[in-house]
């Protein structure tokens, strides 16, 4: 029997790695992928709790998360493409026009 805490720590680790990736990487698409890592980690946590408390709400919510992730990825990548068209780069350091 895997204790719940194991699953949760697993989820937390994945989440931290995702955050680390967001902060470190310069490529916009890779940052997106790290965001996906974070979302997946949350999914793991949700389903773990579901299993250990005999509920099905978490699965539904996880379903919704996937749905939203799909929508978000499509729109986000469309933005990246539009950005690339304008600036010929996806390097986040060079996208700094919105400053004061």
């Amino acid at each position: 029997m895997v204790p719940l805490s194991h699953y949760l720590i697993f989820s937390a680790t994945l989440f931290s790695i995702g955050v680390l990736g967001v902060l470190i990487r310069r490529n916009a698409i890779v940052v997106f992928m790290c965001v996906e890592i974070m979302l997946n980690a949350v999914n793991v946590s949700l389903i773990a709790f579901d299993r250990y408390m005999n509920q099905h709400d978490g699965q539904i919510f996880s379903f919704m998360v996937m749905c939203v992730a799909a929508a978000e990825v499509s729109v986000g990548l469309a933005i990246v493409i539009a950005l690339f068209r304008n600036k010929a780069t996806v390097n986040l350091d060079e996208i700094n026009l919105m400053k004061w």
């Binding site: 720590i9 989820s11 937390a12 299993r51």
Partner: peptide, 30 residues
Amino acid sequence: GVLMIGVLYKFMDTTAEAEFNSPATVPDNF
């Protein structure tokens, strides 16, 4: 990063109590 990991660990640890060590009995069509 370090802080994040530590906090998350602490967070998760306090949440997982002893009674959650074994999973609940779930129906077959879970």
